[in-house]
């Protein structure tokens, strides 16, 4: 189990954006990090990864796969070279990783683009490259930040299948997303963030518990919690 304990954090000293973010990531579970724009989801992820300039707290992460909010690509590497570099640098069985990368390229229909620079791809295709790079190695933990952004419906369906497979294999996954209807279907637990602090956390039933909502959706519960907070 991974325990996240962030006391405070931000981009400048004495200007904390995050306050008391504590939650657990259990093996075989997908946790949805939910919040409005600017709530602090990506900042929380950065604090976990150790890339936030100022952070107080303790986060011990194992080696992990990461899908960033916006595609990050190397201008001077082709797709094949991105994959090849990753395979060589993670220190897992090269042939197994190569097979998995090939399968992912087929899944996301990028096999014909291997010799091209991904920086020249469309936004959706770049997002698929990010997914291939994150899911080629086998990790016990994955961070996926807005993974559905720019994906076509087929790719979204394949990604959901992939996340389910990883869960079944015992991986912990933290997913930040605005797609609440999808999150509601695939996440096991939720961490609702508002203004840099946790609004509520738990399973969907626990989130809804004590909240007066018209329908049973996560969105309605989230809205109601925000109203109460105001």
């Amino acid at each position: 189990m991974i325990h996240i304990a962030i006391q405070s954090g931000g981009y400048e000293s004495n200007q904390n954006i995050l306050h008391d973010i504590h939650f657990d990531l259990i093996p075989g579970q997908l946790v949805g990090l939910i919040g409005s724009n600017g709530a602090g989801k990506s900042t929380t992820i950065q604090a976990m990864m150790g890339t936030l300039p100022y952070m107080e707290g303790s986060v011990q992460l194992p080696a992990y796969g990461y899908v960033p909010e916006r595609p990050i690509l190397y201008e001077y590497f082709t797709l094949q070279e991105h994959i090849d570099f990753l395979i060589r640098s993670v220190g897992q069985d090269d042939s197994v990783l190569q097979q998995r990368a090939n399968k992912l390229c087929e899944t996301f229909q990028l096999t014909t683009k291997l010799s091209e620079y991904p920086t020249k791809f469309s936004k959706g295709m770049q997002q698929k490259v990010m997914l291939i790079l994150a899911f080629t190695p086998r990790y016990s933990f994955y961070i996926v930040d807005e993974p559905f952004m720019g994906l076509d419906p087929q790719a979204m369906r394949r990604l959901i299948q992939l996340l389910n497979e990883l869960k079944q294999q015992g991986a912990s996954i933290l997913m930040s997303t605005h797609a609440l209807d999808t999150a509601e279907k695939i996440c096991d637990r939720f961490v609702l963030i508002h203004e840099g602090t946790i609004l509520k956390k738990g399973t969907l039933a626990e989130i809804k518990d004590g909240v007066n909502v018209e329908d049973n959706s996560l969105l309605a519960a989230f809205d109601a919690l925000l109203e109460v907070k105001k």
Binding site: E75, Y76, T78, Q80, D84, F85, R88, S89, S115, E116, Y117, T119, K120
Partner: peptide, 19 residues
């Protein structure tokens, strides 16, 4: 850069960081 590289398209050095 162009759409794809013209030279050194395959692995050229064993150490990936040097490459």
């Amino acid at each position: 850069t162009g759409k794809k590289p013209r030279y050194f398209t395959k692995r050229i050095i064993q150490d990936e960081v040097v490459e």
